[in-house]
Design a protein around this nucleic acid. Structure first.
Lengths: 219, 219
DNA sequence: GCCGAACCGTACCGTACGGTACTATGAGGA
DNA sequence: TCCTCATAGTACCGTACGGTACGGTTCGGC
């Protein structure tokens, strides 16, 4: 379905530096500032090089998305938690990370850019963001949840439903509000607190009572 | 803080017709198609009239947002539900409506437009969408929740937290995914089913066991 | 029948931007 | 030393778009 021939392009250091400049430009000035001339000026490179390296303006934008995604490393599973409280901490850390990443200036700027273009051109940028962003989040969350289920800390039949609840409880409308330019209240900026609340709610939905003695041996 | 002098402008039928054309243009062609010349052509009016009525292009966009918001009437509280099952039905209807509205082409197009501009110009459009859209949703949800609490069907201390959970469980990442151009799977398009699941989860979090006698046997 | 207001359609202007071409410069290699 | 290649810097072109101006038309009031 989706372009499977898409090979992970990797860029030279110089090109990455240019992309970094472009990203900074985008974060600071919004999409309006992200002109080819502006990028070239900010990066001290020529427009001709831009077109040679990235094809056209859209190619530059796509490369910026890929560049930013490559920076946000999806931390691997790390040491698999053995105790319930440790597992809960892992989930809370995940929620906290998620809130912080999605609230980051670079993430917001790129999501705004992709959403602004999603109405035309078959939403190439949008799909790219979904693929490099959401997909990664879902993978990490799915692995975490599956671990919890195997350990007997969680019980669910439908993994998608559980993920959906987790994401919803953690993010709520924070993301869209920030995308629209809303500023979070100082209280809402306490991501750790929000994460704790959300994970508490999530456990109320999908937690087993299995705390005391390691496992209750469900299938 | 926020511009309090903002008076609800109401437009003439002719002007509303122009805004309707503009909205259709936006939905069909994306923000790129929404040029002043395009709007004038689609609405069979002159650019001069556009500028006379709405000031400038941004004024037209703001007017379109207001026009669309005025179309989506926030249904009043209606008959206040007396029984738990009726209350639950109300909440489910609310969730279903919310999913349907946010997934509507017009809503998506306007949100995309506002988000695309949120990085510059102090996000005037974004704040407008938040004010006319999210605020209304929050009001209706808040009233529903408060009713449920007074009736003893729900128990919560922090109304914001409860609203957040409700919104998150209902919407999850549907909104952002669609904003980014993702197509919902046929299963995900069954808003009623999603609504039922989400409200079930919400009751597990905030429902009292009230009316043990009457009926709880849903699921 | 005449007047003025509102308005349509179109022509026009200035600018901004995507994209291309050309020159200059500097580094490596024979 | 000379050649080649990559790249910076800049000038240039065509187009699209926001905004304005103006002539022509319709319509209500007198």
């Amino acid at each position: 379905m989706d372009g499977g021939a898409e090979v992970f392009e990797v860029f030279t250091p110089r090109q990455n530096a240019v992309l970094e400049s472009a990203l900074r430009l985008l974060v600071e000035g919004g999409d309006r500032a992200l002109t080819t001339a502006g990028i070239a000026r900010a990066a001290n490179c020529s427009k001709e090089s831009l077109y040679k390296w990235f094809g056209d303006r859209d190619g530059v934008l796509a490369a910026v998305v890929g560049y930013q995604a490559s920076k946000v490393r999806v931390l691997g599973p790390g040491e698999m938690p053995g105790s319930l409280s440790s597992f809960r901490d892992h989930l809370t850390r995940f929620a906290d990370d998620l809130l912080a990443v999605l609230s980051g200036e670079a993430s917001l700027a790129l999501n705004r850019l992709a959403i602004g273009q999603a109405s035309r051109a078959d939403a190439k940028l949008g799909h790219l963001v979904l693929e490099r962003g959401r997909r990664m989040i879902e993978l990490r969350a799915g692995a975490l949840l599956e671990t919890g289920r195997r350990r007997g800390f969680l019980a669910y039949d439908d993994a998608d439903e559980a993920y959906r609840a987790l994401y919803g409880l953690v993010i709520g409308d924070f993301h869209v509000r920030q995308l629209l330019g809303d500023k979070l209240s100082s209280q809402e900026k306490d991501f750790k607190a929000s994460a704790r609340v959300a994970i508490g709610q999530f456990f109320k939905l999908y937690g087993t009572g299995a705390t005391a003695h390691s496992t209750n041996a469900r299938s």
